[in-house]
Nucleic acid binder design. Structure first.
Lengths: 245, 245, 245, 245
DNA sequence: TATGAATGAGTCTTCATTCAT
DNA sequence: CATGAATGAAGACTCATTCAT
């Protein structure tokens, strides 16, 4: 009657939507994407029809669940970026992501490019996460906290791997130790390797993002389309050299 | 058309068993455990009944496929143990295991304790693998090639994680670099990171069939939304008592 | 936002009722009786509950829609009866009825006795239509404008058939020509044709759970094909006794 | 073992396919296209899965049922064409078609262009039926047994209308009388019309199929693509005059 | 024996109907 | 009183598993 906030949101609808979302999150975490919708509905204490009113397909429900988690993750990453030193922000963010992964169907399934679950609509959020990771990585590298040969795709793969590790190691503390061990490999400390040659001393640095025209280093911003050129002049020059088509 | 005479029968059966096993291996690798048995049969060029003659359940087929892979792996590990220096044997074996993981359904799904697929019969083979890992680990630690605080379960979890990494990183060479980076963390070196969170919450059960205001019994209809109040009067009364929010 | 004062209420309700009725008419015409009630409500710009306030079931809504159309039709027929020569009135009325039928769900579906839609309440209006047709028919026959052997039921069937014709012939003018051709057959003139067939057959019930050969009790599993024999021996015996076919 | 006829057809499969087809035919006839597949399966005495083995979707089942009926119809029409006088063949064929229509879901629903049920695959059979109708019509017209202004589309619409008539008139004999009455309107007898102008005297003849290039009369064959030109010469000439595109 | 047909429990999804707001 | 959220029975379809041929 008096609530003017929100458009057409009724309190019961809001409550049920939240319950479904939460129940679905739990169910996916415990039993994977294959959990029947009926079970989710029962767990949420609502009818199957209610689930369908809020999420027109099972797919949409999956998207909503992970979109929320990804959104929270991105927000937390941006907060870290604003408040912490670059290296702390980077490692803290990775740990945040990995921390969400103690379950069967995880953010990482969504994050890695070849997930078994198709997820068209999430593309935008996932892209934002990837971009944020790239920005944090670059900053940490410039601060000297991360080895220069690491690239953004490496970070994604490492995250996915660490998530799998924590899921596989039932002792939580031990899982964290392993993650720390793995992530520490990213730092430029790099001491003695007993046998076999290590990756650390055999590879040159990872190419940093550079202007495709003049090669100048590019600054990645946390939002917006990632730059290809260092400025309007180079963009125009590149345009002139492209075939007419 | 007609079975030729007596003698050859057994070899027929053996050949079919092998074809099914190989078709199942490919199918699981390409499409995961959810691939229908009918597809596997078709791919093997046999009838569904033939699959069931050799493997009484789908579960048994999965077991057979991975039992074979695990067996080969164990054999290779034992060979390494016999022929190489302890540390080389250890790291080489890990790399072997991880190398089998570039597919949708992997040895690691079977190997890790919380695999999505239950696997009673495999326990023996998996246990043998775990034991072999433990032995190799201990030898490498005694040789000073692996940090002493690492335990056998850590190794399993690391393997699973590395398998996920290589699956996530589409550039194969880059994937290998990441794996080496991670495994190098096991060698004598050292520091530390942050914490993660998780998203969950729980809800109470659905209300019993009595008016929440006056307690009168409510009539439940087979269709439509279940009532909370016995009528408009009680509903209004309950509404008035609710906080404004 | 807030209902203005007291007086206007009834006119609101009347307006909504009319909107629902009109929306339902359009929806039925375009998409048939299977159109969901929610779509009708949306088209009418009201909530589903409002539809139910005015029409307690979907059935009632269908009745109301066609009752209105039938009422208009009957009124027009009575006007014709009063103002035209008997034969003109008769043929004019038939043409009126058929003219309403250029859609998916038609008056004729309601009018014919074996309509797909059950319609108890409409009986009165339909009966009135039938009676009017009978009166007009009799008058036209007495005036010598219609063959004497035609009965009221024939007229109903012809009307239904002509409605189907016009719906099937997309060229409207051509449809009208066909209708006229058909109705002209009612005027004094005359000859005859052949027979049709139909495709049917029936089957006995499913076998009881005992071996068909030796009568032993059979164990039914919850899945898989139910057994007919207790084992391979009986199956083979039964097979031998079967005719070669 | 010895049956060599047919490829991969097992007797039980053949039997079940026939039972499903027959059960579906009955069910559609009695209760329309909306009958649940489960009911059809139960009526056929088989499981739902068996229906799906033979017909991958409900749509496919509908197609199969009516494809069979249409096929029989076309065959009977071709037999009539070969054995009877043109006019008899024409009217006999129409009566055959109409005779199949004493039910809820009929060949005519399939035959008329705007049926509510989509039917892509049937297009070929329906086209063949239409063509056969056109051939028979032309022959009957040339024999002087059918009025010249009638066209093939008129015949289709009349058939649909007559089918609706017989379905509406429960007394079968009376239904046949009405059909005869209607079809007789196609004969060139055409006597007295009391009031109103009749279609019979107001319209010119229907255009006969003619070569699009030279206007010569075209002979329609019962099979193959209907001709547009009277021969290769006219086809070539028409081709030359077409824009290059 | 190998083949592939038959089975039915279980999944996703729709929609007429009822009630909270 | 109007709105639209919640409900659950029912329908189309899949697939592991078992048996007739």
């Amino acid at each position: 009657m008096t609530t003017v906030i929100g458009a057409g949101d009724r309190s019961d609808a809001r409550r049920n939507r939240a319950r479904v979302l939460s129940a679905a999150g739990e169910a996916f975490a415990e039993r994977g994407f294959d959990v029947p919708l009926g079970d989710i509905a029962r767990r949420a204490g609502v009818g199957a029809g209610t689930v369908y009113r809020h999420f027109p397909t099972k797919h949409a429900l999956v998207e909503a669940v992970f979109s929320q988690q990804l959104g929270e993750l991105v927000a937390s990453g941006e907060r870290r970026m604003a408040r912490s030193a670059p290296t702390d922000a980077f490692f803290g963010f990775l740990t945040d992501i990995i921390g969400t992964a103690r379950s069967r169907a995880t953010v990482c399934d969504i994050m890695s490019a070849d997930a078994s679950w198709p997820r068209p609509v999430l593309t935008a959020t996932v892209a934002r996460l990837h971009q944020l990771l790239a920005v944090l990585l670059q900053a940490a590298q410039q601060a000297g906290g991360v080895r220069p040969e690491i690239g953004p795709d490496d970070v994604v793969a490492l995250t996915v791997g660490c998530a799998a590790m924590t899921a596989a190691r039932h002792d939580h503390a031990a899982g964290l130790r392993l993650v720390r061990l793995t992530l520490d490999g990213l730092r430029p400390s790099a001491p003695g390797v007993t046998e076999g040659r290590s990756f650390r001393d055999t590879r040159g640095p990872y190419p940093a993002p550079a202007c495709e025209q003049c090669g100048a280093a590019l600054t990645l911003r946390p939002t917006g389309r990632p730059p290809r050129y260092c400025g309007a002049a180079c963009r125009q020059r590149a345009h002139r050299r492209r075939p007419a088509s």
